[in-house]
Design a protein around this nucleic acid. Structure first.
Lengths: 230, 230
DNA sequence: ACCTGAACACCGTTCAAGT
DNA sequence: ACCTGAACACCGTTCAAGT
């Protein structure tokens, strides 16, 4: 077994005594939400649980395994509805929005998308739900997987840099003039970019990003639907 | 100035003496290509340059700045053609493929997309080139930005998990049976997923991913084109 | 202007030892 | 079965000191 993942080995069977894996993962997620990916260390997490730092290695082989567990818990917050009632486009849209919101709520998870494969049970459940939506739409065979991969790619690809922007820009939104000045400096050689920065300046950035996400999602759905009719 | 980025402060002016920033960034990229994101440490990089580990702090305020520099160098490898000759769809397609290939060549950069804003001159050049393509297509105003963001999101969203998969699965591709067994275990509860795993098993995974990327890209372009005609 | 080395405050992980 | 503490081999960064 050259590759490793928590999901590919048997969990430690245990009765009631001792700490549970859920308890540890829950505390980890809390710490991650509060302090970000760099804020999670085995020592801090141990302390939070009132235990020695190295006790955790009884439940988890490595820190990466812990992150895999926490990552899948994030997938667990994504909600998928039955496509039969509302139609596949609405079902996919709602799921896409849910995925985006969940990532935005747990910014550290954006980093993990590029670091860990999503093999946990919750990730599987979400993928399967989306696959079913595309089957309802009329996709068959490999194109079901392709459509699922495509839409997931769009959602994550849109959300990941959003998170990067928010976290590096921190709370600088207090002073939009300063921020605009910075962007102006960086885009100095591209007059058209400057224009659009000025244009957006009067809108709430959150609103703009929402509009942008919906624009792309609509395009994505139209493009996928087109695959069905030709 | 609450937020920080190499691109938002004046670089250190220097004549010929001493090391140059380019030299340092070049060595960093080499190290990153060879050993990955975790393989780059200030000490190792210093050693590689025949210098003390802390000398680098003369040229760079922090390791993150160094990564910003290296990241933008990756953007520098992406090539954009003039849309006037080939038409906007082909120009955008070629750029999308170029972006994907460059990321695959520098897997560590996939992680950075979610960590650093792309504010460097090369990132700006690529964004501006894509913007021009969409202007040629007929987009105007805000939709130029939306289309650019949408397509970029798709490309990165598709490529980032691809990299994650490759790096965690390492060289396990030697033994496809083992890998298939692993996936089968994880997807045990989803019979349809199992089916498609079996189906893909006889194809080269690289080919499948290429097909998937083109499927999604085509859909994306169709969907964007549709925005123009209504 | 450029570079050094020592030092600080951290890391993840291993392992022998305890209960 | 579960937890501990000490220890190892690392980190990024600061800073006084050198040339």
């Amino acid at each position: 077994m050259q590759f490793t993942s928590v999901w590919l080995r048997e969990p430690r069977r245990s009765g009631s005594p001792g700490r549970s894996r859920d308890e540890i993962v829950g505390a980890a997620v809390e710490l991650l939400d509060r302090e970000g990916l760099d804020g999670l260390s085995m020592r801090k997490l141990g302390a939070k649980l009132g235990a020695g730092a190295t006790s955790l290695y009884w439940y988890v082989a490595t820190k990466d395994e812990l992150l895999e567990l926490a990552y899948d818990q994030v997938w667990g917050e994504m909600t998928a509805h039955d496509p039969d009632g509302v139609g596949w486009r609405d079902a996919v849209s709602a799921l896409a929005h849910s995925m985006r919101q969940v990532i935005l709520r747990h910014p550290w998870s954006a980093d993990l998308i590029g670091r860990l494969p999503a093999l946990g049970p919750n990730a599987m459940r979400v993928s399967d739900a989306m696959r079913r939506m595309f089957k309802v739409a009329g996709f068959t065979g490999t194109t079901v997987d392709f459509a699922t991969a495509t839409l997931t790619a769009y959602v994550f690809g849109m959300t990941i840099p959003e998170v990067a922007w928010d976290t590096t820009m921190g709370e600088a939104q207090h002073d939009p003039d300063e921020l605009r000045a910075a962007v102006r400096k960086v885009a100095a050689d591209y007059p058209e970019m400057l224009e659009s920065v000025e244009m957006d300046a009067y809108e709430d950035p959150r609103t703009v990003r929402e509009l942008c996400f919906d624009f792309g999602l609509l395009s994505m759905l139209d493009g996928l639907e087109r695959r069905l009719t030709t």
